[in-house]
């Protein structure tokens, strides 16, 4: 079974970006994921998200979870890459927050 690839782009209302140039957290263990955030100048005010997951048929859940996080924090100006091995939505939100914190927080 092939991996599911998802691509989203959002434009949050109050755009903020991370302090550091890049940030990485997590290990792709069972039920876990890794998040890599990289600043990209061309993406001013918007955010691109690339997800590679082993789970099939949860595309809407992924979109809801990620959109909720971005609406809440305003994370933008970055490219987010996620490798996932069947993490639950709670874990996904937690890792995204940790990745933002690891990048020095939002400004």
């Amino acid at each position: 079974m092939a991996l599911t690839e998802l691509n989203f782009e959002f434009k949050p209302e109050t755009p903020k970006t991370i302090v550091e140039e890049w940030s990485h957290v997590g290990v792709v263990g069972s039920g876990d994921l890794e998040v890599l955030i990289e600043k990209e100048k061309a993406l001013k005010g918007s955010i691109k998200i690339h997800i590679l997951t082993t789970v099939v048929g949860f595309d809407d859940v992924w979109e809801t979870v990620v959109k909720k996080f971005i609406d809440k924090t305003g994370l933008s100006g970055v490219k987010v890459s996620i490798n996932d091995n069947a993490a639950t939505p709670a874990v996904v939100i937690r890792r995204l927050q940790q990745a933002v914190d690891n990048g020095g927080g939002l400004q």
Binding site: A2, L3, H24, V27, V28, E34, L52, N83, N85
Partner: peptide, 13 residues
């Protein structure tokens, strides 16, 4: 791993 549909990691563990 990608061909087999297994989860991958950026630093390959």
């Amino acid at each position: 791993l990608l061909i087999l549909g297994e989860a991958v990691e950026f630093d390959d563990g």
